[in-house]
Computed example of a mutant assay.
Amino acid sequence: MKKLSLYFSILFLFSFSSTLLAQTQAEMDQTAINDYKKADNELNLVYKKLMKQLSEKEKKLLIVAQKDWIKFRDSKCNFEQKEYEGGTIQPVIYYACLMECTNKRTEDLKANLEDREKRYGAK
């Protein structure tokens, strides 16, 4: 039941993708990769904007935190895809996990940036 629920959750997630016209597994895999890349690009933009607001000490701390987060994200997604090892859905599960984690991290960084802008004003 858990696998079926996760599969339908993935399908639901991708139903909102503007590129979801995929019919084959390869197309679904590529859509998942593209969606992750889009999320990663957004994260990088927010990260760079936040870095501009930080002191040198804070920048060093954020760099460490980001490296730790990447390790966590990769471990989490490797764990989540392991259940589907050998299955055709495995790449979609992996990249959907990367996208979801990346979107959450982006929201965290945006919240930090917005909080700083409220406290200190935009730089």
Rank of each mutant, 00 (worst) to 15 (best):
V64M: 09
M1P: 11
G86A: 01
E80G: 10
K104G: 11
F14R: 09
S17L: 00
V46L: 12
F14L: 03
E56P: 02
E117A: 14
I33K: 01
E117D: 13
L54N: 10
K52I: 06
E80D: 09
T19K: 15
L61T: 14
G86V: 05
K2A: 14
Y7Q: 09
L109M: 12
L62I: 09
I10C: 07
K82T: 04
K38Y: 03
P91H: 08
F14W: 01
R73K: 13
N112C: 09
S55T: 07
N78Y: 08
L13R: 04
G87L: 07
T31S: 11
I63A: 13
L98Q: 06
Q66V: 11
N34L: 10
S17Y: 08
K123M: 06
D68F: 00
T88S: 10
N78L: 06
C97F: 02
A32V: 01
E42T: 15
Y7R: 15
D74L: 07
Y94D: 00
R73P: 06
Y94I: 03
T24M: 01
C97Q: 00
Q90D: 06
S9T: 08
E56I: 09
A26S: 04
K110C: 14
K118N: 12
Q23R: 12
M99W: 06
Y120H: 09
Y95R: 05
K2Y: 09
L54M: 03
D74Q: 08
Q81G: 07
I70C: 12
S75V: 10
Q30K: 02
L98A: 04
C97I: 05
K76H: 11
E117P: 10
L4I: 00
L43D: 08
Q66I: 10
S9W: 02
R73N: 13
V64W: 14
I93Y: 00
Y84G: 10
Q23C: 08
L113K: 04
A39T: 01
K37R: 07
P91I: 00
S18C: 02
F72N: 00
D35W: 01
I70A: 14
W69Q: 04
L45A: 15
T102N: 12
D115H: 15
E56Q: 08
L113Y: 07
V92Y: 02
E114F: 15
K76M: 10
N41S: 11
N112G: 15
R73A: 09
Y94C: 06
G121E: 02
K37F: 01
L50F: 10
I10M: 03
I63W: 10
V46A: 08
A39H: 07
R105Q: 00
F14V: 06
K82Q: 12
F12E: 04
M51H: 05
Y95I: 02
D40N: 09
I70F: 01
W69S: 09
L43W: 04
S15W: 12
K82L: 02
T106V: 07
F8P: 04
K57T: 11
E85Q: 11
N78S: 13
E56Y: 04
S75K: 11
A96R: 05
